[in-house]
Design a protein around this nucleic acid. Structure first.
Lengths: 228, 228
DNA sequence: TTACTTTGCGTCATAATAACGCAAACTAAA
DNA sequence: TTTAGTTTGCGTTATTATGACGCAAAGTAA
């Protein structure tokens, strides 16, 4: 590990991941408890160094797979952080990605996750090592703005979901109240989601309609305005 | 130069710049004619390698200063490109920035620019070396979408400008026709610009009103819709 | 002067939005 | 199984935003 920082003239390149999960009206982020210095026993974003001949996305999937036991999910490059001093070990430039995952799907592999990996509600994120607080904040900001015009939030829900679940997801992520009926009209008009025609099983009388993301949507015509 | 690629285990880190300029209803990008292999005599985006202890932004300003003779301008990180093979010399990961400049202000230092630097209208960009066509395309896309909700375009104009000049800037960048009167209403309502109260000098009867960007604008309430 | 263009400011029909009503479907408690 | 309360689906309405375009004063060029 320390080898990475010995005598190279080029800064090291790392990848940091902000993994968001949503469950029960709570947006959480996946943090890692470090076993090594620096920031030993402190919380940080999961991350890793880039190996030669490896793409940044490959680093992401490698980290997700080996450190978190996660297979595949929505990934998007966020920003590249390069403040000198952001890593006490030396000059490390980090390309940050953010990811969205439905913790339901994660449940299967949850057992394989070391107990040094933990979900934290976004309003209860502890002090983070490196400049990870800043990276996290920027990722959250990006998610908030992206959800307004892109169906990114669906990655956080099951394949099928009720209107109420989608509505609550938006309210939770944005941290605001959104009129239920106006939200419904807007999201249905946009055709971002389609009714499945079925009702959810298991309930006594299976009431609420189920929807799924419309994969065949030609183009983005969704624009949720933030009530001021 | 080739030293950069000898025996390091870490990929090299570079910065590439997409410098936009606007003049007379034409949006242009600044390209560099390479003197060295690879792509000798071919056109590329200006760029450079990151030195140890240098921030990415410092690389940007260094390139702008030494290669282009430009002092300061609007700079924004665009994306980090890492496809293996994007640079034939070896593994190079490049952080791309885009910049906006008013060529008027550039005129002073134009003489210091080597004649291997040239403005190209964005629709007449020649074949570019590396993956620079892709970087350029992404930068242009970003500019187009950013201008819809952020007063980024003002960096391309003089300190004071007429409504017509601003209107033409938008039409040029977006490549669409925008109703002059609706544009005026929308941009004035947003308070992104304010009237200077003066008229432009030099004209016989100095007719059109002059505006300037409103520096004291609290928050973004501008949203120019793209007429469909 | 005259003919033409540019600029500033309106109007108006239509669409989008925010606020909210209401009954049927559903749940849980008695 | 009845009753009271909640959730869900679907409207209505007043207000605002938008797109299309009229028009005259200011400016220009012959």
């Amino acid at each position: 590990m320390a080898k990475q920082f010995s005598s190279y003239k080029n800064p090291s390149l790392a990848v940091d991941l902000v993994v968001f999960g949503y469950h029960q009206q709570e947006l959480s982020v996946l943090l890692l408890n470090r076993k090594d210095e620096p920031f030993k026993n402190g919380w940080t974003l999961p991350g890793g160094f880039l190996q030669m001949e490896e793409t940044l996305l490959e680093v992401c999937t490698r980290i997700l797979k080996t450190k978190l036991g996660i297979d595949k999910l929505y990934l998007e490059q966020l920003y590249t952080f390069d403040e000198p001093g952001r890593d006490p070990r030396g000059r490390v430039i980090s390309v940050a990605y953010y990811a969205l995952i439905n913790p339901h799907r994660l449940a299967v592999v949850a057992g394989s996750m070391a107990n040094d990996v933990q979900w934290f509600p976004v309003e209860k994120v502890p002090r983070l090592g490196f400049d990870h607080k800043r990276i996290f904040g920027q990722a959250l900001q990006r998610l908030k703005s992206k959800i307004l015009y892109h169906p990114v939030g669906f990655e956080l829900l099951d394949d099928t979901f009720t209107m109420t679940e989608l509505h609550e997801l938006y309210e939770t992520i944005l941290g605001i109240a959104i009129d239920r009926r106006n939200f419904r009209r807007k999201i249905l008009d946009s055709e971002y989601i389609v009714a499945t025609g079925t009702k959810r099983e298991g309930l006594k009388n299976r009431h609420p309609d189920l929807y799924r993301f419309n994969k065949h949507l030609k183009q983005n015509n969704f624009q949720l305005n933030i009530p001021s």
